[in-house]
């Protein structure tokens, strides 16, 4: 009988001492060399624009590896990664260490801002405009034009049908949709916004998902459609853009450009067509990077920006006179000038 006590005791000891540590991936220490290798590998395997931007990531990694040593100052270590990630030229790529966030914002800092909120608020929207969720709107020039400013795709667009109905009721000649300085937000809002003005079901954009570690491992295209919702709108639409239009805003402009009654005016958007995901380095710093690609209906990638139909900058004299050059030109386009 004793032997059964021994067996049970032995099994009990085995079971209680069962420890997943011997089975699990080794837990990496937060040394700089570990951080460097993890960051280098994850970008190499999952970042989606190495090919499109013709980036030789391996050579960037090789050039920076000698700069990394365990025990180095955290700020120096951060700066190495900052330089490496800067070469990706992607507003969706950030490393957040808490004390700093790496970024490359050249996509808009190197271009005219083409936007002055004070002029819009004081001389166009004025005091009595509607604020319907995230939509700021009113009619201009005695109800001749509808004007909507939408500053973030994180703000609600649930009142877009109300806005349309208001403009239909006022019998405006066309709508100016101003998305300048809209840095993006929820992609679903961009699709919903485009659906509100779609005349028929159309291909909005194509998306490609990274499916493997090689830089050209992508899924077959996934078609994202837009389809009419709510009251039909067939009057002219002018969309105002600048380089600070990014991410979901670029998707929105891409989808809207498919419609026959839309003109995009201003400057190319800032792009940002890859959906970003997050990843944590061994030292707890958060890395964000794009893992998908997107193209328009013609297969043109818009990671670096959506082309406008008509380029136009704010005119300095107009600004001095309190005029927004783009809004004034948009009125002309609606008038058929």
């Amino acid at each position: 009988m004793k032997k059964y006590y021994y067996i049970i005791s032995l099994l009990g000891v085995i079971a209680f001492s069962s420890c997943e540590k011997v089975l699990m991936e080794k837990e990496l220490s937060d040394d700089a060399t570990n951080n460097f290798e993890v960051l280098s590998n994850i970008i190499s395997e999952k970042y989606s624009y190495l090919s499109l931007k013709n980036i030789n990531w391996d050579s960037i990694v090789s050039a920076n590896r000698p700069k990394i040593s365990n025990g180095m100052n955290a700020i120096d270590e951060f700066e190495v990664y900052d330089e490496m990630l800067y070469t990706l030229k992607d507003g969706h790529v950030n490393l957040n260490s808490g004390f700093a966030m790496s970024r490359n914002w050249d996509w808009y800092l190197g271009s005219p801002s083409n936007f002055d909120w004070n002029i819009i608020e004081r001389n166009y929207l004025e005091e009595d405009y509607f604020i319907s969720g995230g939509l700021k709107h009113r009619t201009l020039d005695e109800d001749k034009y509808g004007y909507v400013y939408y500053g973030s795709f994180s703000s609600s667009i649930s009142y877009i049908e109300f806005v349309k109905a208001l403009f239909v009721n006022k019998e405006v000649d066309g709508i100016i949709i101003d998305v300048r300085n809209n840095g993006g937000g929820y992609l679903s809002y961009a699709t919903d916004f485009a659906n509100a003005f779609a005349d028929e079901e159309r291909l909005g954009y194509k998306e490609f998902y990274k499916t493997g570690a090689n830089k050209d491992d992508f899924s077959s295209p996934v078609n994202h459609m837009i389809s009419p919702e709510g009251e039909k709108w067939d009057k002219p639409i002018v969309i105002l853009t600048n380089r600070k239009c990014f991410s979901s805003t670029s998707f929105f402009v891409t989808m809207m450009k498919e419609l026959p009654n839309v003109t995009v005016l201003g400057d190319d958007t800032g792009g940002g067509a890859g959906l970003p995901v997050d990843y944590t380095l061994p030292n707890g710093w958060y890395l964000r990077f794009s893992t998908t690609r997107a193209t328009n209906n013609l297969g043109e990638d818009f990671e670096l920006g959506v082309k406008v139909d008509e380029y136009l900058d704010l005119d300095a004299t107009d600004v001095q006179n309190g005029k927004d050059t783009l809004i004034e030109r948009a009125k002309e386009i609606i008038d058929g000038v």
């Binding site: 997943e20 699990m24 991936e25 837990e27 990496l28 570990n34 993890v38 997050d278 990843y279 944590t280 380095l281 061994p282 707890g284």
Partner: peptide, 12 residues
């Protein structure tokens, strides 16, 4: 619980 998930990071 102890979780390692390569889709969210290198840490446990």
């Amino acid at each position: 619980n102890n979780l390692y998930d390569s889709s969210i990071g290198s840490q446990h």
